[in-house]
Amino acid sequence: MSFIECVDLTHIYNAGMENEMLAVENVNIKIEEGEFVAILGTNGSGKSTLAKHFNGLLLPSSGKCLVDGMDTKDEEHTYDIRRQIGMVFQNPDNQIIAAIVEDDVGFGPENIGLDPHEIRRNVTAALRAVDMEEYRHFSPHHLSGGQKQRVAIAGALAMNTKCLVLDEPTAMLDPRGRHEVMDTVSRLNKERGITTVYITHFMEEAAMADRIFVMDQKHLVASGTPREIFRDIGAMKKRGLAVPMAAEMAYRLQQKGLRITESIINTEDLVRAICQ
């Protein structure tokens, strides 16, 4: 059984109304426990709509979304599903609610009525996991964007979440903040086996994933390893996307007559291909 499974999932906003809009159509996806998947697609391709189904924020208009075997439409499972899947959004300022970091991280556990000792323990462990323990008494508005996003991730971890769904978590961050978030996400996936769904417009970030899903005009149009997906530069450009810089450079060099047989998705690949 896959951890997340979408079966013929279709989502229509404002169904039956004048401004009805089809956002996602007939998507079939399976995400395994412990996997790191990235979702790519242009603005409006349906990737955020799809991701909001993973914890039941949106329910399918038709088709199904199953999390750990539970149907998101089944109301009695809503809380179980949301405890297992934590969401992190683009704007860090829209998802931090408390005046002190530890209160923010403790909000979820407190809300589900955990024992105060356990809350404290969860909060400490979560802050440590994102390397923010020394900031536990800080006010969030004194933190950088990358630090705020890590606090948001800690908020999910404090609920013992099994899966993180991150919707463009680095779009508003500077390079340092982006690295902080990417390193944290990738470490949590590797060391703790947290299933990770990572939506991004940055191809270099998607290249870290085990698998990439590509959305185009409401449909899932491709899935595969980063090497498989980034091999077809023409197709990616046609979809309004791109490939990592090293892959683009390899492609340009090939067009100038350089023979490169290996698949290139990062700088190490390219250096190896050229310098040896």
């Binding site: 697609g41 603005n43 683009q90 779009a171 508003m172 417009h201 309004g240």
Partner: peptide, 9 residues
């Protein structure tokens, strides 16, 4: 261009 896709950027 923050938050836009590659083509939009």
């Amino acid at each position: 261009t923050a938050g836009l896709d590659p083509k939009g950027r």
